[in-house]
Amino acid sequence: MAVQTPPVLQEIIDDFQDMHEPDRLELLLEFSDNLPEPPERYAGHEEEMEQVVECQTPLFLALEYTDEQDPEVTIIVSAPPEAPTTRGFAGVLLEGLSGHNASTILSVPDDVPNQLGLTNALTPLRLRGMSALLGRIKRNITEHLNA
């Protein structure tokens, strides 16, 4: 499968790249602030969501699919306010990828987290947490398609 970044995600990456490093963290904070709450039906059911254990703080992930052969994927994430970096990463992936088709998301390059220009500002551990989240999203989709 060809590696390709959907335009919405590419725009976000460009926004990050156009900034100086401290401003990039401010932008990440905006994504954290604007991370949508999981829909009501997930409230109190975090244990039914998939836990992204690679993240430094508890982060729960759920994916919803439409019925098509190449389904539209809705990404749902729950992360506590004490974890703004994790929330910020989740916000970037949510805004950049949620609502796209499965095939589009699967073709996103795995190194997207490294393209945000935050490798100096954040520890490698944190960036790996974001890579892990993308990896989990892709794996969940692959499993869904093979089911």
Partner: peptide, 22 residues
């Protein structure tokens, strides 16, 4: 903080951030 963005979400008035990593 461990999460270096946490300061920006709210801190003690007048407190200055120190980033252990950078």
């Amino acid at each position: 903080n461990e999460d270096t963005l946490l300061y920006s979400t709210g801190h003690i008035p007048g407190a200055v951030k120190i980033d252990w990593h950078t």
